[in-house]
């Protein structure tokens, strides 16, 4: 464990807590894309299949349970909670996210480190996570008023993978044979997708005005 990875995990945890806080306290998921939440639930479900077979540390297992639990409960809230589900703007959140799942699955079947069931699904989860934010970014561009909590959620979610990139550089420099091109490229693509969001987020923060993405 290094400080970059810890910072990344804590940022990721914070993004999930911000979203759960928003949904649980103000009982609203306005501006939040259910499609992105469903993709993330699939990402964690396929990434953490080894939760019962391999144990690294209490921290590792605990965080996996938190990410699994939070992502599925957010999907449950947005789909079935009587109050929250009414605040979900179904008409705007129309990104066909299944068009993201299939190509990622095909790519994982083509490009992976080992051709085993767990490894292919794990690789699939990496590719899917890289693009999972797209429905959310599209929704943000459609809904003009981005409330602070949603903006913070996306910002933290984008930041965590940036810390992971620093972690991979650190581990490459300090651990022999630590080379994982698939993870690195997927993580880089994921972070780059946030680039324009980050730009407008910082602009709104600097000029102290509401966050608005160009249509």
């Amino acid at each position: 464990m290094n400080i970059f990875r810890l910072a990344g995990d804590m940022t990721h945890l914070a993004s999930v807590l911000v979203l759960l806080l928003k949904i649980h306290t103000i009982k609203s998921c306005a501006g939040v894309s259910l499609k992105t939440q469903e993709l993330y639930a699939i990402v964690f479900a396929t990434r953490y299949l080894d939760i019962f077979t391999s144990f690294y540390s209490i921290y590792n297992t605990l965080m996996k349970l938190i990410f699994l639990g939070s992502s599925f409960s957010i999907v449950w809230y947005m789909r079935y909670h009587k109050t929250v589900r009414r605040t979900y703007d179904r008409e705007q959140d129309t990104f066909r996210h299944w068009f993201l799942v299939l190509p990622c699955l095909l790519l994982a079947l083509l490009i992976h480190e080992k051709f085993t069931f767990l490894e292919v699904l794990w690789t699939f989860s990496l590719y899917l996570e890289a693009v999972a934010i797209l429905p959310q970014l599209v929704l943000l561009q459609r809904t003009r008023n981005i409330d602070n909590l949603t903006g913070q959620y996306v910002f933290l979610l984008g930041g965590y993978r940036g810390f992971y990139i620093l972690n991979w550089i650190y581990r490459y420099l300090t651990e022999p044979h630590f080379v994982h091109w698939i993870t690195w490229i997927a993580g880089l693509v994921q972070t780059l997708l946030y680039a324009d969001f980050f730009y407008y987020y910082f602009q709104s923060w600097k000029n102290n005005k509401k966050l608005q993405l160009p249509a």
């Binding site: 990875r5 690294y56 540390s57 590792n60 965080m63 972690n167 044979h177 630590f178 993870t183």
Partner: peptide, 10 residues
């Protein structure tokens, strides 16, 4: 944390 492969990451 042990193991050099990246499965020990979240």
């Amino acid at each position: 944390w042990p193991s050099s492969h990246s499965k020990d990451e979240l």
